[in-house]
């Protein structure tokens, strides 16, 4: 009686399709990626049902972290001279005594969160060292020392004639008075239109907004 032979199967798998898929995904991520800007602080934004997407255009971004620290950043990829004019203006009006090199560093720095009297010291550091510094935040506590007002004013002037977004990115745990003071800094500059940066979420089922969206209409904003 012949013994039943079990065919020895090769353990070799053809990896080619696997590799194909892997590299396809890789290519997708490489093309779709936009790197996170180096945030000086960790901010978890609240959710909102708003469907407007954040536009990547020139603007003023004020960040508010959970301890109430305020950071100022300018998005000025389209006109880099705006950033330069802001720092030059502040240098003269606030007697900061910045060197040309320090002003160049400002243009590269992503967000500023130091009072004016520490700005020179902060900009004297190079980019790597700046990241390690724990910035105390721009003072906004009362109207006499509200330095954010000057930042906003100069940025607004630098962008004059262009459509500028005033974005406020606050942390979930930030307290309302801090947020109010940020708003005040803008309001003193006669800026009344803001965009709050939030994470998207769906309209709750059964609510009026849900019904409007279901029927395909857009809720009027006015």
């Amino acid at each position: 009686m012949p013994s039943v032979k079990i065919a020895r199967k090769s353990t070799d798998t053809d990896m080619t399709p696997f590799v194909d898929v892997a590299f396809l995904i890789l290519a997708f991520f490489m093309l779709a990626t936009k790197f996170k800007p180096p945030d000086p602080v960790e901010i978890t934004t609240p959710n909102s049902v708003s469907s407007d997407k954040l536009e990547q255009k020139d603007g003023i971004l004020v960040q508010l972290d959970k301890d109430g620290r305020v950071f100022f950043a300018m998005q000025a990829d389209a006109n880099p001279e705006a950033k330069r004019s802001v720092i030059q203006n502040l240098n003269t009006t606030r007697n900061l005594g910045l060197t040309a090199e320090e002003m160049r560093r400002f243009e590269k720095a992503y967000a500023i969160g130091v009072p004016f009297n520490q700005l020179k010291g902060f900009l004297a550091l190079d980019e790597e060292a700046q990241k390690k510094v724990k910035q105390p935040g721009i003072p906004v506590k009362d109207s006499a020392t509200n330095e954010l007002y000057y930042w906003v004013r100069d940025a607004w002037t630098a962008f004059a004639g262009k459509k500028v977004n005033c974005m406020i990115k606050g942390d979930n745990a930030a307290k309302y008075p801090d947020f109010k003071r940020v708003l005040e800094a803008f309001k003193r500059n006669d800026i009344y239109k803001f965009q709050l940066v939030t994470a998207p979420e769906n309209a709750p089922v059964g609510t009026e907004l849900y019904k409007i969206r279901e029927s395909g209409g857009k809720p009027s904003t006015k």
Partner: peptide
Amino acid sequence: STPSTMDLFM
């Protein structure tokens, strides 16, 4: 997910 914005008019 790109963050969304919420308009606020004061």
